[in-house]
Simulated scan of single mutants.
Amino acid sequence: MTRPIGYYVHHQGDGHRQRALAIARAAGGAVTLLGTGLAGRTGAIPAVDLADDRVSGDLFDGRDHGDRPASLHYAPTDHDGIRRRVAQISGWIAEARPALMVIDVSVEAAMLARLASVPTVYVRLNGLRDDRPHREAFDAAAALLAPFHAALDDAAIPQAVRRKTFYAPGIVVPTAVTSADPGLVLGVVGRGGGTGDGTLWAEAARSVPERRWRVIGPCSVPKHPPANLEICGWVDDADRMIAQAGIVVGAAGDGLVGSVIANRRPFLCLPEPRPYAEQTSKAARLSALGAAVVAPCWPARDDWRDLLDRAAALDPAKLASLDMTDGAGRAARWLQALADAPDEQRRMTA
């Protein structure tokens, strides 16, 4: 393959970037990343750092607070960042002539690439995304890529969408760790997460004092933390810490769920509100498969012990059944084959 594959990376959370990097590395230099905030964060992988399109600073809620065409999700008017962003993407497409664009995720970026005469692969996340913009993006795509096992798909997903989907769990592979500490509870707060109140973690730690508690991610430090609680903040080795934990507590984001599955860690899942019920749908499937204990809201003080005990008793084989080896390699080879296929065969390849 002589022409590159473009990979659009959304800036909400960090799971999109990690997934894109894993696939790009497996593709051996055939992929260029395009996204906001990528400068200095892609290593040797080529990247285009796009202008910011947000209307509210660092917090992106996906809302543009205005009228928009019914086939789009986010189209604020008179926004300099969006004008420059569209010009950057279009300019790169005109210069690089990509064989394929992977969109992870944005209906607007997908439609822009398709208007620029580039076939697209849309990354399909969990949840029931059956609104008009998603349907349009799915229909316009040559194929869909799901970074999770087919067993985690929402039961209401139409068969036509499933048939168009390449399922690729295990894309981001954690660092191998030989042993875990059964007495350690690891709380994971993600970028954009809503469980970063240190006083809540302090109360949880006090409710189960015989276990050690550690919290990573953007979490406030309580004024009087109990002796069995450690607030670590951002860390560079989150996967290793997840692998070493006796029980992992956190939301149902792609990055955390993928690491829990890969490391076969007992998981107490606290799904957070997300558009299209992304996390609640994923958590419901994990629970139904016996792969996680799910609490629909922050647990009461007296509920923590039972929830943790139930999580500790989970069968790790249930998590193993949701994993695949070489997920990034499988996805990269599939994308390269799709990029090399004649245009009329791309939909047959999906």
Score class of each variant (00 low, 15 high):
Pro4Val: 05
Ile5Asp: 08
Asp14Arg: 15
Asp14Trp: 00
Asp14Cys: 00
Arg17Met: 06
Ile23Gly: 01
Arg25Glu: 13
Ala26Ile: 06
Ala26Lys: 03
Ala27Gln: 05
Gly29Thr: 09
Gly37Tyr: 05
Leu38Pro: 07
Ala39Asp: 14
Ala39Cys: 05
Gly40Pro: 08
Thr42Gly: 03
Val48His: 01
Ala51Arg: 08
Arg54Ala: 14
Asp58Met: 12
Asp61Pro: 00
Gly62Ser: 08
Gly62Asn: 02
Asp64Pro: 02
His65Trp: 14
Pro69Arg: 09
Leu72Ser: 10
Leu72Tyr: 14
His73Val: 10
Asp78Trp: 03
Asp78Ser: 12
Asp78Arg: 14
His79Ala: 10
Arg85Met: 08
Val86Arg: 13
Val86Gly: 01
Ser90Ile: 00
Gly91Asp: 07
Ile93Lys: 09
Pro98Gly: 06
Ala99Thr: 04
Asp104Arg: 08
Ser106His: 02
Glu108Arg: 05
Ala113Asp: 05
Arg114Gln: 13
Ala116Asp: 12
Val121Gly: 01
Tyr122Val: 11
Val123Cys: 14
Gly127Ser: 04
Arg129Trp: 09
Asp131Ala: 11
Pro133Arg: 06
Arg135Glu: 14
Phe138Gly: 02
Leu144Val: 08
Ala150Ile: 10
Asp154Trp: 00
Ala156His: 13
Ala160Lys: 04
Val161Arg: 13
Arg162Met: 12
Arg162His: 11
Lys164Trp: 03
Pro169Trp: 02
Val172Phe: 04
Val172Ile: 14
Ala176Asp: 11
Val177Asn: 01
Asp181Glu: 15
Pro182Ile: 07
Pro182Gln: 04
Val189Gln: 11
Val189Thr: 06
Val189Tyr: 05
Arg191Ser: 14
Arg191Asp: 09
Gly192Tyr: 01
Gly193Phe: 03
Gly194Met: 10
Asp197Asn: 15
Leu200Met: 12
Ala202Gln: 03
Glu203His: 01
Ala205Asp: 04
Ser207Cys: 04
Arg212Lys: 12
Arg214Gln: 15
Val215Asp: 02
Val215His: 03
Ile216Gly: 01
Pro218Thr: 06
Pro218Met: 07
Pro225Ala: 06
Pro226Gln: 05
Trp234Glu: 13
Asp236Cys: 04
Ala245Tyr: 02
Ala245Ile: 12
Ile247Leu: 13
Val249Ile: 14
Ala252Val: 10
Asp254Ile: 06
Val260Ile: 13
Ile261Leu: 15
Arg264Val: 05
Arg265Asp: 01
Arg265Glu: 01
Phe267His: 08
Cys269Gln: 08
Arg274Leu: 04
Ser281Leu: 07
Ser281Trp: 07
Lys282Asn: 07
Lys282Tyr: 01
Ala283Lys: 04
Gly290Phe: 07
Val294Ser: 03
Pro296Lys: 09
Ala300Val: 00
Ala300Trp: 11
Asp303Ala: 15
Leu308Asp: 03
Asp309Cys: 11
Ala311Pro: 10
Ala313His: 11
Pro316Thr: 02
Ser321His: 13
Leu322His: 06
Leu322Ile: 08
Leu322Arg: 05
Thr325Trp: 00
Asp326Gln: 12
Ala328Asn: 03
Gly329Ala: 07
Gly329Phe: 06
Ala339Arg: 08
Asp340Thr: 01
Asp340Trp: 02
Glu344Met: 09
Gln345Arg: 15
Met348Cys: 00
